[in-house]
Nucleic acid binder design. Structure first.
Lengths: 141, 141
DNA sequence: AAAACTGATTTCATTTTGCAAGCAGAAAAT
DNA sequence: ATTTTCTGCTTGCAAAATGAAATCAGTTTT
């Protein structure tokens, strides 16, 4: 993720990968979209075990990019709720295509594959319904 | 891309990102799929200017992963032709979803956006036709 | 008052990347 | 025939990113 240096190109794939082309960023988005995670410690506890400094760095970058939003939990002054913007929710189709490919070619956990396949077989409508629901869940305030 | 160490999880997104979750890998695939590039020097000449050692590294990893195939050019003994396997061609939908997102949120080159939008609007059929054609072009021998 | 939990920071070793130059071999040009 | 150019690829080294562990100051909970 570049700070705001000049872009190397204006190719659509490059511009996307410049934002989320690394090992962790899309996994954080996955945590939020698929697993409904919202707090720092939840992200830390994911199977892949991201380091806390990297997590902090990515959350900041994602907020700066306008993909997530930081809000303080009204119920717990010290807790911070991370939620997705529309820009973040729109990464969902990318996550699904990655899942599709992995299910075909890698040894994906059978339950997770089943869960993903349900959405894939549901087609565009199912996917849009999920995204619509996500937009409600993640709406500000 | 991990050598063959234990996977951190069997989550579909993680397993995919473990293969192509970096700045360069999908750009090489883009070069092959979108721009029809087949030779080392062609990849080197892309706008984003990948370093030659990184390129070598990624091409090796992609071959090891079974995403690309190396063949020597019968017309030019010293030239090597890199082509896509089915596993590589199946990354095309991911590239398209990334393009879709970038066109919506980033300053994508207008001509490249138009080219991508044509495919997007063509729907699943257009996409499948392109992939079928790619499979012919990239078939071994 | 102590303990546990919050998001984050610090330190430091390891790994990955970026950059520039250079390589041997093959083909093309002179 | 010999120089020049082109091929995929390597090397050396600096810079940046990552990983791991310990630690932090507040805030809740016990």
């Amino acid at each position: 993720m570049e700070k705001s240096i000049k872009y190397k190109s204006h190719c659509p794939q490059y511009l996307g990968l410049d934002v989320f082309g690394d090992k962790w960023t899309l996994l954080i988005i996955r945590d939020m979209i698929i697993d409904g995670k919202r707090h720092f410690r939840e992200f830390l506890s994911s199977e892949e075990k991201i380091a806390s400094n990297i997590l902090t760095n990515r959350l900041q970058a994602l907020e700066l990019e306008g993909i997530i939003r930081k809000e303080s939990d009204p119920m717990h002054k010290q807790k911070i709720i991370y939620s997705l913007t529309e820009k973040g929710i729109d990464l969902f189709p990318i996550l699904m295509e990655i899942a599709k490919w992995s299910i075909k070619y890698k040894e994906v956990d059978i339950e997770k594959a089943a869960r993903a396949n349900k959405i894939i077989k549901g087609g565009k409508e199912t996917q849009q319904a999920i995204m619509k629901e996500l937009k409600r869940e993640h709406s500000p305030n």
